Simulated scan of single mutants.
Amino acid sequence: MIFQATEWLMLASIIAMPLYSLWEADRVKNAVLSGTKTRVRAYQEAMLFMWLPTLLLLALVAYGEVSATTLGLKWQGHLANWLGIGFVGAIAIYFLYSATSLSKNAELCDQYRQAAQSHDWMLPTNKRELQWFTAGLSISAGVCEELLFRGFLIGVMSHEVGVSASLVVSSLLFGICHLYQGWTNVLRTGVIGLVLGVIFILTESLWVVITLHALVDVYGGFVGYILNQTSKDIVNTSIDSKLTKSRP
């Protein structure tokens, strides 16, 4: 591999992310669950964690050390680009329909709640947390993680190690970075990273996967908020019922 010194620096910064996640994941979870750290604070720290290496990469782009075209930031306007945008639009419509259906279906809420047990501690429970999760954390994840894991690790590294190797490495590191969601979700997120990588390769546009990634995370935030709100409604209904029965 004949990387430039700046590319080695960028690679080291990205590799440091999953290593940090391995060390820090349980601490953040325990802090939130114990009440010593708010969810909003955890969101803010995660955003800082993602933006630091991303700003380094953007600085390298600004100084001409890394090509914006290689990262997939140049919109080429060919068929693959537009098909990618069409796919993102279809996903957005599906997410909107799914979230609307979820808010009206208690049985579906139970299914989603069971699936989210490993990471429900980080999902928003009120409107302020929802705002930070969607407009802050989700957008940051879409921009930062795609620039780092797809744009750099695939767009740049593939010229030296090949597309297949860079795709596998980027997906593996991407999955480990989400250890805070539990080991089961490390595998799931790794697969998602693999899919996003393939979409990036096929569309040749980082904008497509940035938008898709952000949509997935925003949807996850709204789903978490809906689940937490329905849980509160169930608890309140149960309390009201008990109070009613206890009255003479």
Rank of each mutant, 00 (worst) to 15 (best):
L60H: 07
E65Q: 10
Q114G: 01
N81A: 11
G86I: 13
L137P: 00
N126F: 05
S170V: 02
S170W: 04
S98Q: 11
L172G: 10
A46T: 15
G77P: 07
A42C: 06
A115D: 11
L58N: 06
V66T: 02
G86C: 12
A42T: 01
E129W: 11
A59I: 12
L52T: 03
W121S: 02
G89R: 05
E146H: 03
K104L: 08
A90D: 02
L56S: 00
S98E: 13
M50K: 10
L148F: 04
W51R: 03
A106F: 04
V61D: 00
L96Y: 11
K104W: 05
E129Y: 02
S171R: 08
Q44Y: 09
S101A: 14
A141C: 12
E107V: 09
S101K: 15
D120H: 14
F133D: 00
S98G: 01
E45N: 12
V156N: 01
V169W: 03
S101T: 15
F152V: 00
W51H: 07
S164V: 09
G64F: 04
L57T: 06
Q114Y: 13
S140L: 03
W121Q: 07
F87V: 10
H119E: 14
I91T: 12
L108H: 13
G175V: 01
Y63E: 07
A62R: 15
V61H: 08
L172T: 14
L56F: 03
I139R: 02
E107H: 10
G72Q: 04
Q131V: 10
S101C: 12
N126R: 10
I91E: 14
A141P: 08
F133A: 09
V61G: 03
L96A: 12
F95S: 15
L123F: 04
S140G: 10
Y97K: 13
L55M: 11
C144R: 06
Q44D: 05
A59W: 13
N105G: 09
Y97H: 12
E129N: 09
G89L: 12
F95D: 05
T134D: 06
A99F: 07
V66C: 01
T69D: 14
F49M: 04
T125K: 13
L130T: 14
V156T: 06
V88Y: 12
W132R: 03
W121E: 12
E160N: 08
A92E: 10
G151R: 00
L147H: 04
M47F: 07
W51I: 02
L55N: 02
I85Q: 08
V143S: 05
K127A: 08
V61A: 04
E129I: 09
S158P: 08
M157R: 07
A115G: 02
A99Y: 14
I139D: 09
A46L: 01
